[in-house]
Design a protein around this nucleic acid. Structure first.
Lengths: 163, 163
DNA sequence: CGCATATAGTTAGTTAGCGAACTAATTTAA
DNA sequence: TTAAATTAGTTCGCTAACTAACTATATGCG
């Protein structure tokens, strides 16, 4: 905290943030198009739904909506909406938490797992197509700095909000 | 284009995109808070308005809304809305294009320049506060890779949409 | 010329996110 | 032990983006 800040390079930092914003937007568009339709359960899947499904499959399901909201830095109402959509498609199931009647637990159904696998294949295909002809290693060289920045902002935000 | 793609590291790339998304979201929240109120003309300014104003001041005004939309990779209606807001605050002025009656030109007013300067100062302050205690150089090491990725996706999108 | 096509900007309607405020359940502490 | 404070999830209303479709002007070609 208490540091002798050297004059920060505003322009370079602003550029970085702006490029991050543009990448995010373009990547979102690509992902949306890839997921837009034709996923197993019919009707397609939003990128946020995909993220939640993926995390629940890879890291284990049974999380509460609030915990998922924090994990993805989304507000509780947003996560609530995402889970509702996943539920309507039959991709997740909400069960009551035995022992805390306020809480719910999110479980991925078999249908959900299949839909996620199909969607992930489409995403990977789109990603390969999107990155065709680019120096992937050069791009991945940005990963440590980006991870650092993300970690720092995460912490700060959590500090401000009191987790 | 025609390349023997080595097996791409899906997980690392997905991680990068996800971190980019989270940074974007958190940075947006910080910027929104910084610009939220108390800018010259009263009532605050959105981050997109700020971007348009900044570009028009730094690189020269008199662009058409459509060209600005393309520059920022926003849809025409979105840019239209941004310009309308800037106009209502008196930060920009729209003049007819002599020679093409369909077209308009966006000029930044003196008020707009003052508002932009004030807002930029607030943004820089917020940025310094946000990045306090972090290794800025390490973060900026991500800039080249990010710029490369952004450039690549820009090109691809323009190729797809036919500019 | 005059019609087909393309471009500039706007309008209408949708969507995904947010914050504020609410209800219900739990925990803390007087 | 009961009142106050906290936590989980939802509802409401807002904002800023999007796409699709429209109007008006420009351009290109038969």
């Amino acid at each position: 905290m208490t540091e002798h800040d050297p004059p920060p390079d505003y322009a370079a930092i602003r550029d970085l943030f702006r490029n991050v914003g543009i990448i995010n937007q373009l990547a979102g568009a690509v992902a949306r198009r890839a997921l837009g339709s034709s996923v197993v359960g019919g009707a397609g899947m939003g990128t946020s739904e995909m993220m939640v499904l993926g995390r629940s499959i890879r890291m284990g399901d049974g999380e509460t909506p609030t915990r998922l909201a924090r994990l993805f830095q989304l507000s509780k109402p947003s996560m609530s909406a995402i889970i509702t959509k996943l539920g309507r498609k039959g991709f997740v199931e909400l069960r009551a938490d035995t022992g805390d009647a306020r809480s719910k637990r999110v479980y991925v159904t078999e249908t959900g797992r299949a839909a996620h696998a199909a969607a992930e294949a489409q995403l990977n295909t789109a990603m390969v197509r999107e990155l065709a002809g680019v120096d992937v290693a050069a791009i991945l060289s940005a990963a440590p700095g980006i991870a650092l920045l993300k970690g720092h902002m995460d912490e700060r935000r959590n500090a401000v909000d009191g987790l």
